[in-house]
Amino acid sequence: MSWLTDFIPPRIRNLISKREVPEHLWSKCSSCETMILTSDFEKSLYVCSHCGHHGLCPPKLRYSHLFDEGSYSVLESVRLKEDPLQFRDQKRYVDRLKDARLKTQQWEAVLLAQGSILGRTAIVACFNFSFVGGSMGLGVGEILIQGAQWALHHKKPYIIFSSSGGARMQEGILSLMQMPRTVLALTQLRESAIPFISVLTHPTTGGVAASFASLGDITLAEPKAVIGFTGARVIQETTRQPLPPGFQTAEFQKDHGFIDHIINRKEMRAVLGKILSLFDLPKCIPDSNSGLEI
């Protein structure tokens, strides 16, 4: 029995009791480990004010900063059959999907939208790494292909913000099939002279880096983003050779001609707007069945 809780009057007890700190009040930079107010972190688009590290940024927050006046339309995609292989590891695949949807408030790892960037309309797909590591399965492949079809039909530029660990292992060979499918969709854009801009954010690896993410007519990246197919440790153990400093970072890839330019997240809207202004694409007639107001 505690005299503090059982005999002290309630008012006094409330004065001396420990105040609870609200959950998620603080966030920690994954690079320098500095604690930052979550509200301030969100306002800075998850760019650390101390070391400049670009953290994971959810699509809706990115879109609110990217599109004019933060206004955009989400393009609904076809929902495919879930768990085609009935996969189970530590937990069922369908349960992982439920947890990811609850956590991110998204149906899949990619959110497809359309809106104006400095007055220029574009179709934009953005990965959410918090959704099963931004992995690419049947659903993600279908969304990316649908985005390419929208861009082709309406003669509008296509932009993809990639952030992924690669193919989704729970869908096996079906996830790997999305690599050639997305490449073919982008080939159609190139043949029709519709620009595709690939923006690589941290991290962009595996089958995503080895397919559509590497095929941009213009390829941009965020500072210090890890970009590559296989992890640096695996490569070093396989080749038994020391890797050069900064291997697989955006800066390393730019120095070796893989990336055209590295852009700070806060400047991305301005840079993309300037790039889009260079393209003289024909105006399109709105399609009443499309759901797009272009």
Rank of each mutant, 00 (worst) to 15 (best):
I218A: 03
C48E: 12
F87V: 02
G55L: 10
Q149G: 07
S31E: 14
I143T: 15
I197E: 07
P245T: 02
H256S: 04
I235H: 00
S135K: 14
H24W: 04
R265G: 05
S17K: 10
I16W: 08
S163W: 00
K224A: 09
L278N: 12
V271M: 07
K60L: 13
P9Y: 06
P286Q: 13
G141W: 02
L184S: 07
G273Y: 13
K91H: 13
R190D: 10
L174C: 03
E33D: 15
S175R: 08
M136E: 11
D255R: 14
T38L: 09
S71I: 12
F131S: 08
D260N: 15
K274I: 00
K274P: 00
A232E: 09
K283E: 13
K266D: 08
R92A: 10
R11E: 15
W26Y: 15
E20N: 11
R120Y: 10
Y93P: 05
L152N: 09
E42C: 05
L152H: 14
E171L: 08
K28N: 07
T187G: 08
A210L: 04
S27D: 09
E108D: 15
K91W: 07
A122W: 05
L215N: 09
S164T: 05
E76A: 14
G119R: 05
S2M: 00
H202L: 06
L85E: 08
G55T: 15
T230M: 03
K98W: 06
K60Y: 07
V234N: 00
G133L: 03
Q90H: 11
R240M: 12
A193K: 09
A148E: 08
K98G: 03
L66F: 14
F258S: 08
W3H: 13
A270H: 04
L37V: 09
R233V: 04
A193P: 05
P180M: 08
V140H: 12
L272E: 00
I263A: 07
K60M: 14
D280S: 14
L243P: 00
G291M: 03
L61F: 02
V124A: 04
L102G: 11
R168K: 07
L200E: 09
L174M: 13
E20Q: 12
L189A: 05
K28V: 15
H50Q: 13
E20G: 07
P223K: 06
P242K: 01
A210R: 14
V74Q: 10
W3Y: 12
